[in-house]
Nucleic acid binder design. Sequence first.
DNA 1: TAGGCCATCTGGTCCT
DNA 2: AGGACCAGATGGCCTA
Length: 175
Amino acid sequence: MKTKNKPTKRRILADKETFHGEPTSSKQDLEKCLRNRDRRKGEKAEGSKVGTAKKKSSSGSRESNLRRLESNERERQRMHKLNNAFQALREVIPHVRAEKKLSKIETLTLAKNYIKCLTSTILNMSNGCLPPLEGEGSAHNSKFYQHYQQQRGDEESEDHLKKYSTQIHSFREGS
DNA sequence: TAGGCCATCTGGTCCT
DNA sequence: AGGACCAGATGGCCTA
């Protein structure tokens, strides 16, 4: 696992960049950030773009900047939620590389094959004929089986357990 | 140092 | 209209 601790670091960097380290939990904070941002933008524009600098200090522009910052914050929260979901997924997928965090693509790939493996196991154990669930007929189970057969498609003869196991080890080797 | 992975920003589009 | 979602761009951190 990479000892990055990125979320915090990144957030600090982002804060420095856009908010000058000030917490952004309130509207006042956002306003403060905007002032700093505008100031720095002005400084930048002075040096670099000659004659193309737009004079955009109207309240409308400020409003849109504010909306942008709020939108950025929402996007960060959304991505954090997504990452939490990834983390939760990592915790339920058995894998041998415990000391190293699975990447997102590895997590998804392993999860997919783990599900396939479990499905295959269940169906083998039940011979494709699961006992009906309470309150339901066998239709549900046969649908399940049909779906499974469909998903298998061209990998009909594949041994999912073998594949999954191989994959776990290939990830460990880092290939 | 290159390449992989990641967080964040951003503008566009979709949805409610 | 505003929020959610998405994908591209950018730049930082880490490892081989």
